[in-house]
């Protein structure tokens, strides 16, 4: 039934991406060593990038690899190295009573609600947005063109705001991570 209505390659791509994403995500929450968790996170990010490409979001897939896997996870790894590699999480300690079953229950209820909502309701609604004039999404370089046009016209103010946000974040990180011993070192010299 499924194979007749949808192209087989897209099903194979979806299943492969789903396996990569789920296995990586389970690795993040089960491994004890933080380095292994970070590497599992890279696996999940690659799976999400595959899913992006399968859905005509080519530029976002490239950004996903470059920014997430290339920058954010490397930042995680740097901090792990800085804090000490052999520090493992105490997975078996459970200070709050029944925290794990309660968390599992909450997650299952949330997921069940989401899936029930998806199955019950007609969720694709309304007319096409005015921002694209109902043009279909394109893939490849046309996707970059389409997304660039959108970001630099419709979302220009938000784009400028993100520039300010990044500057603020960098300044804040430098202030947080700065050692305050420099003042004492000056005093010793004098």
């Amino acid at each position: 039934m499924i194979a007749t209505s949808y192209a087989v390659p897209s099903i194979i791509v979806f299943v492969g991406a789903a396996i990569i994403i789920i296995v990586g995500a389970l690795g993040v929450i089960t491994f004890k060593n933080p380095v292994h968790c970070a590497l599992s996170l890279i696996m999940t990010l690659f799976g999400v990038a595959i899913a992006f490409i399968a859905q005509q979001a080519d530029f976002l897939a490239a950004v996903q690899i470059i920014v997430y896997a290339g920058a954010i996870v490397v930042l995680f790894l740097f901090v792990i190295m800085f804090l000490g590699v052999d520090r493992t999480d105490h997975v078996h300690v459970e200070p709050l009573v029944a925290q794990r079953p309660l968390a599992a229950l909450g997650v299952v209820i949330t997921l069940g609600g989401l899936v029930a909502l998806m199955a019950q309701s007609h969720w694709v609604t309304g007319v096409m947005s005015a921002s694209t004039d109902g043009k279909p999404l394109e893939s490849g370089t046309a996707n970059v063109h389409q997304l660039g046009t959108s970001v630099f016209t419709t979302y220009l103010f938000a784009f400028e705001a993100t520039a300010a946000l990044l500057v603020i974040a960098v300044v804040g990180a430098v202030l947080l991570a700065r050692r305050e011993r420099t003042l004492q070192a000056d005093e010793v010299e004098v």
Partner: peptide, 26 residues
């Protein structure tokens, strides 16, 4: 929905995530 706005939103979410990780790890 053939709406590029969804992809533009993901772009901004990535920027905010990068800023959040920077400050959080600090």
């Amino acid at each position: 929905l053939s709406d590029i706005g969804g992809q533009a939103t993901v772009f901004f979410v990535m920027v905010v995530a990068a800023a959040e990780v920077t400050v959080g790890l600090g």
